[in-house]
Design a binder for these strands. Structure first.
Length: 745
DNA sequence: CACGTGACTTAGGATCGGGTCC
DNA sequence: GGACCCGATCCTAAGTCACGTG
């Protein structure tokens, strides 16, 4: 009874397949796991150590079958399995349905607009990532990176004598197109660089801003438990957290309610605890209404009051929002400490609804120069003040839900040395991958034939990471987070194999929840060897066994490190994202006018977002706003045809009057042109928006696309301002500074 | 090597605020 | 001048990956 049959029957409704499992007994098997791995390895060695190097695939398979037979490697999964089964059963009763409305339409399957205009063949192609079918992509055209002197000059690892150039990112930031700067300014963003791993020499800041203290409710706002009940401030505060979320579907979820109630009780006085025993009987509506009224009131404030608040915020920003780091005044990203509230995990998070504690000064670690440190609020103490210049954070504390550390760090635009330079290095690494990706691809294809299971698994996983831009997929502690996976942690239940599907051979269907519980759904034809390997990996496994049972991210990354210095799984995402953008741009940008070019750019960007599976929930008002736009378009059409008619008649009129150079005709002509232009813009906008319905461009734009590619779009007459807004230009100041139009990723 | 942990990047949703439309 | 809409910004969760420890 092989696992893959029992699980391929599809009665499990697609929603429930994704419900996460709260694996409570996560520790059960750890020891076994290690042992088993070790055993396997020995077995592998003794079995294959003296094999002939070129045995046939089949031979291997037979041998490897043996390896699987005893199932030893997979033992450790069994416990989880049971857990998961339980969970599945649970999810049947429909408690937890499709937690992510948005995640469920695979981007490339999404119904495409009819006009072929929408998807150029190239785009289509890249969407499906059918790279392997045409080898061309494995042989990228030679690109003279060498030409890019600047890039060279500034090899990440190369030491740069800290040459003091100008500082202040101000000029770039202030929105004015400041184009070319004088050479001496050119590399201002890369001045001091420390070779000893220090991140700074001097750091001074004002410390964090704490959440405002709790303000008890006015006495006319009442909480009811059967009848009115006055809560102690502590439990009242927690009650308000729940009340504020009453409209959110979170509060209907069992886990959320359970976690909340449990934590709430901890805050209650003993009398309260004795009385309040059932969350269902709690009536929060007055509290909820009160907060709604408050936010209404805030919206309805007078201009002056709003201005006052704005000014106050600005003052806070100026006072706390900046630090001095090595002679620069740098913007801090999050100087406000996270306020207390209820934890909102994403997806089916086992901890959703838990109380996120208020952070006090004594929870806070301050990091700064030892010259002087920020004062804690009167009457309080910091947990610690340290002076660690090997890290970039200014403030940290430990959060009580997962026990992880939270930080206050700098803004992404912050110079340069910290963020900008890191960013730049990231893309330089990706460009180095570009130079050796052929070699790596050749190698992993070779490794598909390896005698060793672990090598085959590694090679197939790498193929997916490369071809599909999957994330690495670290192991996660079960029961602590939502059940999501990445490449190395994909389970048998997440893929289906089709020897033939829709006229294509060797199709693999992926269906799993990735980071943030966003669904990854994709059907891809793969090479035969990959397919056969997958079959092999799945043999004798249960649906919830790891597909790559002899692989994890650290093994994979260690291997990658050997292939290229600095190479890790995520570099493939960066590389493939950036290279895709560059290719798509070349293919798409033939249009004459800027509007069309921007659309092309967005489409290229979209191709990347689809590759990286960056989805968003379709905006709530999407349908309506599309309709509005359509109305506008129709109106514009009417206007246009009117204008055309008028033009015609005035032409005829002019003819009659033998008025060769009629003013009216000229004006009418202008009007028609203007309307045509406007109509075109609207239509492009509609196209763009429709295509973007559930795709988020921001993430790839901000994190995966080498900004220099975008900057270089000026060669097609696309100004940076049309691609990056002000914030983005700040973040990418380094790229705007250095990239020329001939920049090649 | 497994494991825990710390630092930092990547991520989508919520909220804000300024412009537009009626 | 109020409602609405949308991009920008804020928020903080959730990844990746390196490193230290035993």
């Amino acid at each position: 009874m092989s696992g893959d049959h029992s699980h391929s029957e599809d009665q499990v409704d697609s929603g429930s397949r994704f419900n996460s499992h709260k694996h409570k007994d996560k520790y059960k098997d750890k020891e076994h796991k290690h042992k088993d791995h070790k055993k396997d390895k020995e077995r592998e060695k003794s079995k294959h150590g003296n094999d002939h190097k070129e045995s046939s695939d089949k031979k291997h398979r037979d041998k490897e079958k043996l390896k699987h037979k005893d199932g030893s490697t997979d033992k450790y999964k069994d416990k989880h399995k049971e857990k998961r089964k339980e969970e599945k059963m649970k999810s049947f009763d429909g408690k937890v349905k499709k937690e992510k409305e948005n995640g469920f339409a695979p981007p490339h399957v999404k119904s495409e607009p009819e006009e072929n205009f929408y998807h150029s063949p190239q785009l289509e192609k890249s969407l499906k990532r059918e790279r392997d079918d045409d080898n061309s992509e494995f042989k990228p055209k030679k690109i003279k990176i060498e030409n890019d002197k600047k890039a060279k000059k500034r090899k990440p690892n190369e030491d740069i004598k800290s040459k003091k150039t100008k500082n202040k990112k101000g000029e770039v930031a202030d929105g004015k197109k400041k184009a070319k700067k004088e050479p001496e300014e050119k590399w201002k963003w890369e001045e001091e660089r420390y070779t000893d791993g220090s991140k700074w020499k001097f750091l001074e800041h004002k410390g964090p801003v704490f959440a405002p203290p709790y303000e008890p409710l006015p006495s006319n706002v009442k909480f009811y438990y059967d009848k009115h009940m006055k809560l102690s401030p502590e439990s009242e505060e927690v009650a308000t957290f729940f009340a504020k979320m009453l409209d959110h579907e979170y509060t209907t979820k069992d886990i959320f309610r359970k976690n909340f109630f449990k934590d709430w009780k901890k805050e209650m006085s003993s009398e309260e605890k004795a009385k309040i025993t059932d969350l269902k009987k709690c009536n929060f509506t007055e509290l909820s209404d009160y907060f709604k009224a408050q936010s209404e009131a805030r919206k309805a404030m007078t201009k002056e009051d709003k201005l006052k608040i704005k000014e106050e915020n600005e003052r806070m920003l100026q006072e706390y929002g900046f630090c001095i780091m090595d002679n620069h005044r740098e913007r801090i990203a999050n100087f406000r400490i996270e306020p207390p509230g209820l934890f909102r995990g994403r997806g089916d998070h086992p901890k959703m609804g838990m109380l996120k504690r208020r952070i006090r000064p004594k929870d806070i670690i301050i990091n700064c120069s030892d010259s002087k440190h920020p004062e804690p609020p009167p009457g309080t103490k910091w947990k610690e003040v340290r002076h660690d210049n090997k890290v970039t954070w200014l403030v940290s504390w430990t959060e009580n839900i997962q026990g992880s550390i939270k930080y206050i760090m700098l803004n992404p635009s912050s110079r340069i040395k910290l963020q900008g330079e890191k960013d730049w290095q990231k893309y330089e690494t990706a460009r180095r991958l570009k130079k050796c990706v052929d070699r790596i691809r050749t190698q992993y294809r070779e490794d598909w034939k390896s005698k060793e299971m672990r090598i085959r698994q590694r090679a197939v996983a790498l193929y997916f990471i490369d071809k599909l831009a999957l994330r690495a997929g670290n192991e996660k502690e079960e029961g602590e987070t939502a059940d999501t996976v990445g490449c190395c942690s994909v389970r048998v239940e997440h893929i289906k194999l089709y020897p033939e599907n829709d006229g294509q051979e060797f199709v693999v269907e992926f269906d799993f929840l990735g980071k943030d519980s966003i669904r990854y759904y994709n059907k891809v034809p793969v090479e035969k060897r990959v397919f056969k390997n997958l079959q092999l990996f799945m043999e004798n496994k249960e649906p919830d066994d790891d597909l790559f049972d002899r692989l994890n991210t650290s093994v994979l990354n260690k291997h990658l490190q050997e292939l290229m210095d600095g190479l890790t799984a995520k570099v493939f995402r960066t590389y493939n994202a950036s290279i895709t953008l560059q290719q798509q741009l070349k293919a798409l940008t033939n249009d004459e006018n800027v509007t069309a070019k921007i659309l092309s750019y967005n489409r290229a960007n979209r191709a990347v977002a689809i590759l990286c599976n960056h989805q968003r929930a379709p905006p709530k008002t999407f349908e309506k706003s599309m309709q509005n736009l359509q109305t506008k378009i129709d109106a514009k059409r009417d206007q246009l045809s009117d204008a055309k008619r008028e033009l015609k008649s005035s032409k005829a009129d002019a003819k009659v009057r033998r008025d060769e150079r009629s003013k009216t005709v000229e004006t009418k002509k202008k009007a028609v042109e203007r309307l045509e232009d406007q109509l075109m813009k609207l239509e492009v906008q509609a196209t763009d928006r429709e295509e973007n319905k559930q795709i988020a461009l921001g993430t790839s734009k901000l994190n995966y696309l080498d900004p220099r590619i975008s900057v270089a779009c000026k060669k097609w007459g696309i100004p940076v301002e049309k691609i990056y807004n002000k914030t983005q230009r700040e973040k990418f100041a380094w790229a705007i500074d250095m990239a020329e139009e001939d920049y090649e990723f």
